[in-house]
Simulated scan of single mutants.
Amino acid sequence: MNRSIFKDSRNINGIDVYYEYYRNEQPKETIVLLHGFLSSTFSFRRLIPLLNEDFNVISVDLPPFGKSGKSYSFIYSYKNIAQTVISLLESLDISKVTVIGHSMGGQISLKIVSLRPDLAQKAILLCSSAYLKRSKLPLILSSYIPYFHLYVKLWLIRSGVRYNLQQVVYDHSLIDEEMMYGYMKPFLEEDIFKALTRMIRDREGDLHSTALKKIETPCLLIWGEHDKVVPLTVGKRLTNELKNSKLVVLKNAGHLLPEERPEEVHQHIKEFIFN
């Protein structure tokens, strides 16, 4: 079976968007992977080879994360990020996809489905964020303080990579040096903290229940039983409000499902797409 890997950046909506395109010449199905907050395409490293056996796979670094641009002038609202992903796919001449989003990427996936149901014909939400409000006004106003990005940097340093991974992974034995470096690497650049400061003021609230109930796109929700970041109760509520959805709960799993349970996630994805 012929496969090829293409890694590149394209300037979309005024910012460089890094993506990895894993082509499989046989299938017509294309999957788009969208990672979570403070993450990158690295979080799908165990899932991509499995998906590429049956699908074309495009994994995107959502601005300002990973290898994508970290412009201070870009608007980091979920709507604008979703529109940027849509424009990237259009630039690649891709007209139909299944979008898979983890955590924050799940909310952006829902934005894409809401904006372009003709493009994203199915959605798979892995521990998707939902029902988050916009940042409170004092925090938004604080983001305008000169050098506020240094406070953002200090907060991330204090929490630490290992501690953050322990919050998202149920089985802590999975945390090794490769994983820690992979999640730390994007934050070795100073510009990311300035971009995150901008994101604090740009990020709107998650899709309201009214908007969720209007989505007719088939959605598969996969959740970790012990998710500490986005609890299972959120997944159950989201399933009730998405009219054409199904919830699958993985036992003894946390928030970072693509790292923890790639084989099971892959199997549920295949069954959902092919059925």
Rank of each mutant, 00 (worst) to 15 (best):
E259W: 15
E264I: 13
N11D: 11
N11Q: 14
P117G: 09
V17M: 04
C127E: 15
I157L: 12
L196C: 01
Y183G: 02
I222N: 05
L150I: 02
S43Q: 14
L212I: 08
I200F: 06
D61F: 04
D191P: 00
S209K: 08
H35K: 00
F42N: 02
Y19P: 01
L47D: 12
Y183M: 13
Y131D: 03
P27L: 12
N11Y: 13
L141D: 04
K236N: 02
F37I: 10
E263F: 09
Y183I: 15
N2F: 15
I112N: 05
H102A: 06
Y18H: 13
F187P: 01
F272W: 13
K236P: 02
Y181M: 10
K185I: 15
E260N: 12
N240E: 13
I12V: 14
S39H: 10
K67S: 09
D176H: 00
L47W: 07
S71T: 03
P258Q: 10
P117N: 11
L132M: 14
E241R: 02
I48N: 05
I192Q: 00
A195H: 00
G224L: 06
L238V: 07
M179C: 06
G66T: 05
K270T: 11
L257H: 07
V229G: 07
N2I: 15
L232Q: 05
E263H: 10
Q107S: 10
K246F: 11
K236G: 00
S128T: 12
I58D: 01
S59D: 07
L89Y: 05
V99H: 04
T30D: 01
V249H: 03
V60L: 03
K214S: 15
R23K: 10
L89W: 08
I273G: 04
T233K: 12
R134Y: 05
L139S: 04
G182T: 09
G224M: 07
